[in-house]
Amino acid sequence: MEVDLSVVNGDAGSDAGVEHGARLVAFVEAVMQGDDAAIERERRELLAVLPAESFVDAAATIGAFNIVDRVADATGIALDEMLEAMSSDFRGKLKLERFASAANTRQAK
């Protein structure tokens, strides 16, 4: 399956090759921005296309990565060699080096 990675950076309005990808990304953005009206709207839209269990999984994944991201960035852990090897292609495509945290993650090695 071909995935349009630009959606990760908010650059695409399509499903990006992932089922209901556009709805999922719109929901994530609403939750992260904290706009209650947008969250309610996107929640309704998502629940219209996904089973409730899948919606809960999406909400839980948002929670999980708000934990993991903070732990990673506040402890300055290095990117694991195996993970880097697995992800170097899409990291380049996503231009993740632009994040300030990239310097920390590299420096820690």
Binding site: V18, S54, D69
Partner: peptide
């Protein structure tokens, strides 16, 4: 590391959600 592990949401959908959250948090890791 096992792409076959999933929940009700499939793994591609989970990874898309995770990646967008991390991008908005500006997390490189």
């Amino acid at each position: 590391g096992d792409p076959t592990v999933r929940r009700s949401l499939d793994r591609m959908q989970m990874e898309l959600v995770a990646a967008r959250v991390s991008a908005l948090n500006e997390c490189f890791y």
